[in-house]
Design a protein around this nucleic acid. Structure first.
Lengths: 339, 339
DNA sequence: ACATAGAGCGAAAACGGTTTCGTGTTAATA
DNA sequence: TATTAACACGAAACCGTTTTCGCTCTATGT
């Protein structure tokens, strides 16, 4: 039902080593024997057992991906990028969801760190970033397991990292709005403990400062998490009827804000403009379509996977060297701002 | 850097078997020795190697998930359901994407079928359904590897299955539109080789027939794949200015169709109503929000995982018995139809 | 004083491969 | 004829566990 080397050896009355070598086309084995063995193996559809090979090689050809969430477009595109690249190099991808929970993140890593994978690709849960506790990552890297951090990263851990330049993305988006004559630009973001929100907020403020408009802190709404908070956003707009543009830290906040504006009878982009982050279906098919800062998730996944696999397969150098790859964000202009 | 039983045994000058037993709190071992071993193990953070255990037990505690796509909301929710349930039972999830390709599906399954996983959860690629070639599934089931098929299934393979009642969902949605006085209801779907599209088309037709309205085949647009085809949809509406309601096989088609209608100056739902399949972000945050047939992806994933793990862990019965679980779809009424 | 039971531990096989090293046979060479 | 090299293959170790079985030693009972 699943044939092994031993089975073939028994049937053909040769040794296991001979079978193994014959299947690898070793020079050591005679043509006759090789043909016999290979024919038999093909007939019974022999395939070597991955687990046995993993045990021998101390290499599983699995990579562990631990992310906070899978339903949001950005993370799914990253996974897709990882999966495509990893698969092309013969690796499988084990996906674990932390669901923004520190404990789950720790448990997931522990489950995988005992031999199941050759390395980790991960994006930190919000709770982890909030606590600032990275011991689970330290333990793993100290064990010699390579880690690549993407998007939600930390400086506390020395490892390869891949991010987009969130500050630049927010800066350019804000700048674009300013260029179009917007003066009262709101920002809907989350608390600063999330590395990406912090960077985006900085870019937003910098653009306002550079342009001379100045920052009005009251125009910044900081939601506790990335979870949708309809009431929070609604209340914010009730108190800020005068804003003429909104930058949002993700596409859902932006699309929901657009709806609120439309329900108030505002015209987009004539009366008010919107820009979000993440170039997903929502942005593309919203009405009007939403201008966004594209995060290039698939590219990010691909690069993360490449960095990880290169490190996994690379010779251990005496002096470990880590790099941080910063991707450039792209502004995808659609109908929620002037063209 | 990663301690093994052998290391502990050497340090403590006992045998490997003693260490193994001591860590399992075996009665065979004296209190003294157990305490010594356990203390040492804790100190050096010993964790058994999963690969070695897998080889021994012939159980990996991994389950393979092969799906056509990961960026669409439905599949991501299924994965989430699978992951949550599987994790709770100590299993990891290896995700492979077929990207609607038969060959990739085959390759992915072969990669995993050689010991990497204990069972498969999968949804067929469109190309597979089109070819009707299920030999890769047959091979796997004949090897005794349990398989659970969800959503895109086939009768050709005997295994556990989980689906929603697509025909019923389409029937109810169409019925709802008819109740609201709609007479010219269009259907945007894909070719019938996709099991779900076929079932939904049947439900749509049945509702029309049952109500006495009758089916007008020209009002059915069959796109070649689930991929967005903006031109195809646009052209269709150009030729069907008279439709007063549209049922779409997914949410993207529906939201895009709504936009076309809006651009024509039509009011939703006064002039024209829309219903889609899949209760994702798009439906929820579209403007107007989209009424959909919810497919309960997360539940589906959960049930699939449960069926699979139960089978994996269950005693082999002499007579294998398979079940097909049919979930009931739910109509989520939003602003794209009358309330 | 001697058989015996039981406590405590180790040797070894097993899971399914890979790989090194050795060995017997044959044929070529001195 | 004796030596040697090449050829073809097998034995065994190894990866890290689990588990069965057997052994030794002590303590108990007669």
């Amino acid at each position: 039902m699943k044939i092994t080397l031993k089975d073939i050896a028994r049937e053909l009355e040769v040794s296991i080593s001979t079978v193994s070598k014959a299947l690898k086309n070793s020079e050591e084995i005679s043509r006759d024997t090789k043909e016999k063995v290979q024919a038999f193996a093909k007939l019974y559809n022999y395939k070597p057992n991955n687990i046995a090979i993993s045990l021998k090689n101390k290499r599983t050809k699995n990579i562990g991906v631990v992310i906070p969430d899978i339903v949001h477009h950005f993370f799914t595109t990253v996974i897709r990028g990882i999966e495509k690249y990893a698969n092309a190099r013969g690796y499988n991808v084990i996906v674990c969801l932390s669901e923004e929970s520190f404990d789950k993140e720790v448990i997931n890593m522990e489950m995988l760190a005992n031999g199941s994978i050759d390395g980790f690709i991960m994006s930190l849960s919000s709770e982890t970033q909030q606590k600032g506790d990275y011991n689970h990552l330290k333990e793993v890297t100290e064990q010699g397991i390579p880690v690549v951090l993407f998007d939600r990263i930390t400086n506390e851990i020395e490892c390869d990292k891949v991010v987009i330049d969130d500050e630049l993305g927010a800066y350019r988006a804000t700048q674009k709005l300013i260029e179009q004559g917007r003066k009262k630009i709101a920002l809907i973001t989350t608390d600063d403990y999330l590395s990406v929100s912090k960077a985006r907020t900085m870019g937003y403020k910098k653009a306002l400062t550079d342009s001379g408009l100045g920052v009005d802190e009251s125009r910044i709404l900081k939601l506790p998490t990335m979870e949708m908070d309809e009431k929070g956003i609604k209340d914010f707009f009730e108190g800020h009827q005068d804003v003429d543009a909104v930058l949002c830290v993700n596409e859902i906040f932006a699309v929901y804000s657009m709806r609120l504006a439309q329900e108030k009878g505002l015209k987009i982009p004539e009366d008010i403009s919107f820009i979000g982050f993440t170039d997903g279906f929502l942005s593309k098919y919203a009405y009007p379509s939403l201008t966004v800062v594209a995060q290039h998730g698939e590219k990010m996944g691909e690069i993360s996977a490449q960095m990880l696999i290169d490190k996994v397969e690379g010779e251990k150098e005496e002096e470990e060297t880590f790099q941080t790859k910063i991707l450039e964000p792209t502004l995808v202009v659609r109908d929620s701002i002037f063209h």
